[in-house]
Design a protein around this nucleic acid. Structure first.
Ligand SMILES: [Mn+2]
Ligand SMILES: [Mn+2]
Ligand SMILES: [Zn+2]
Ligand SMILES: [Zn+2]
Lengths: 141, 141
DNA sequence: AGTAGGAATTAGAATAATTCCAAATCACCC
DNA sequence: GGGTGATTTGGAATTATTCTAATTCCTACT
């Protein structure tokens, strides 16, 4: 079995595990997100995907992204009013937005950090999502 | 001195303290934000302002909001892709976004909470802003 | 294998928050 | 009172995203 079809099988399994049809479009969108640990926008994903699938449409990229986010295979990151970014890192983590370069960095969190954060909520508030974003300058090295 | 001109003087002082000209438009935009402890959008602010100043334009509301946010008299709150909201609460606090009603609630934080949050950043990352957002269901009572 | 029915994809139009622009008005100084 | 830069204004432009309606693709069933 080639490395190609190996990868294909892995992606396919991930999609099927989420009960969504493993279409070629969904597969390639998921692939380009997973193969780099950055935080691309829909446009950037569209550009990367077109390399291997030139006929795909931007609407389909948006459709696939929505599906992948909903089923939890990809995380969505919204910072200020900028275009939505997509994150392959499924561990609980925070984001640091470098205000000089515009890059978004993952910030690892100690074990049960998010759960501990939840404890500051007053009674009656039940959070399904916790989002922690930093913004500032990162050392350039 | 009437309560009216009293309020006027207070708003005026706040603006002057920030080194910005206390124009009637800036004053009324700041007033409607401060007089309710909610998180209105620019549209909502525009609607409220028009009650006392029917000739103001939406562009001016956006201009004023930008000025007020930049000089720190008002906080800007971005949640997901929804329209930007504006917050009169200058204390450090988190936000809870009620996914049923759409309302945004302030969440008070223990004293130096934000500073402690900053300590989880790896060396070389210097955050000027920390943003903590919850999303979920709030008890309806 | 052939086909019906639903899901997914597609191109392009529509939407909507925000920003941009250029002209009019305003405030303050001389 | 005129000059000057700041502010306001209405409308056009921008742009990420969503919507629409038509086409294509799968899959299940006979
Ligand atoms: Mn983009
Ligand atoms: Mn609005
Ligand atoms: Zn991330
Ligand atoms: Zn607030």
């Amino acid at each position: 079995m080639s490395a190609q079809s190996d990868k294909h099988a892995v992606l396919c399994e991930k999609l099927k595990a989420c009960d969504i049809r493993p279409t070629p479009q969904r597969e390639v969108v998921l692939k380009v997100i997973l193969e780099k640990r950055d935080h691309p926008t829909a446009d950037e994903i569209f550009a990367r995907v077109k390399a291997s699938m030139p006929t795909i449409s931007l609407a389909t990229v948006y459709n696939c992204l929505e599906t992948l986010v909903t089923c939890g295979l990809v995380r969505q990151v919204n910072l200020e009013r900028a275009p939505t970014r997509y994150c392959p890192n499924l561990q609980e983590h925070a984001h640091f937005h470098d205000e000089v370069t515009g890059k978004v960095h993952d910030v690892e969190l100690p074990g049960d950090f998010m759960d501990r954060l939840r404890t500051i909520l007053p009674a009656g508030f039940d959070a399904s999502t916790v989002e922690l974003n930093f913004r500032g300058k990162a050392a350039t090295n």
